[in-house]
């Protein structure tokens, strides 16, 4: 498999992981996911609506044989709740016989305004979920120190945010992502680091991939684009372009110009003095 993304025991062909939330319709979601050519999609766990038995279910619109589902613990504000939701998600995915039953995207949030992760609760939940046999992909801030602590706690992947969830601000602190990469990949170059959250446009995906992260997880930037299907195409290209650019090795940035054309052999015009 050429340049696949390895996350724990999961091998993904695409380096994009795409969310299933906030689309205008399920049909649009299905088409957008297909256009990204991703093979892993995130889903959330929520109470079944008991009054609306005829209501459509997300699972009617997802080919669970095609996609590996990555259940999240979105909406959880404590380690206890996150562990509980992770176990419920696993139970559903076991029933679906989906390979995603053994992993979880851990989100343990601090408050609703920023949706920033609570680092302490996130660390506690990581330890408990790892002990419970989960492969834990952890949403966290771009703080390299907590990133390292999460890896040491057994996280299968650490997923620093580029900027707050759904904010579309891109990568606000590329230097922190760089340090995260150094800390997490030191002596372990294949450890997967994924930028999760903050993407607003395709250029953000390319920029993240050029930093050397292994993948990007996004949702709102596609779902709420004016044309979600076209943006899904753009994200696919951007991810590939960014990855190739990273692998190709960029030139160093310099203060002054260096000519692309030879200095020698330039046709010289005769100097005409005093005749303008």
């Amino acid at each position: 498999m050429p340049d696949s993304l390895q996350i724990g025991t999961h091998t993904l062909r695409s380096r994009l992981i795409v969310g299933t939330g906030k689309y205008a319709t399920y049909a649009q979601m299905g088409e957008a996911l297909a256009r990204t050519e991703c093979d892993c999609i995130t889903v959330a766990v929520r109470r079944e609506r008991l009054i609306d038995s005829q209501g459509k279910n997300l699972l009617d619109f997802i080919d669970t044989a095609k996609y590996t589902l990555l259940p999240n613990t979105a909406g959880c504000f404590s380690a206890e709740d996150a562990v509980r939701v992770a176990r419920l998600g696993r139970e559903i995915l076991l029933g679906l016989e989906n390979p995603g039953a053994d992993w979880v995207k851990l989100e343990c949030l601090a408050d609703k305004r920023t949706l920033l992760p609570d680092p302490v609760e996130t660390l506690i939940a990581t330890e408990q979920l790892v002990a419970d046999g989960f492969q834990v992909l952890v949403y966290t801030t771009d703080d390299p120190v907590i990133a390292k602590r999460l890896k040491n706690a057994g996280a299968t992947s650490v997923m620093p945010a580029g900027s707050p969830i759904g904010s579309g601000q891109g990568i606000l602190n590329a230097n922190n992502i760089r340090i995260c990469l150094e800390y997490l990949k030191e002596d372990d170059p294949t450890y997967p680091v994924i930028v999760d959250a903050g993407v607003g446009a395709a250029s953000d995906v390319a920029a993240a991939m050029e930093l050397g992260v292994d993948g990007v997880l996004l949702n709102t930037a596609i779902a709420h684009a004016e044309d979600p299907l076209l943006m899904a195409d753009a994200m696919r290209h951007a991810c590939l372009a960014g990855r190739q650019s990273y692998l190709a090795g960029r030139i160093p940035k310099r203060l002054y110009a260096t000519a692309s054309s030879p200095d020698e052999g330039v046709v010289k015009l005769k100097k005409v003095i005093g005749n303008r």
């Binding site: 969310g19 299933t20 939330g21 906030k22 889903v43 959330a44 999240n72 419920l88």
Partner: peptide, 10 residues
């Protein structure tokens, strides 16, 4: 009892 299902999410 809690009865939960999967919904769209990121």
């Amino acid at each position: 009892l809690e009865v939960v299902t999967l919904v769209g999410g990121g």
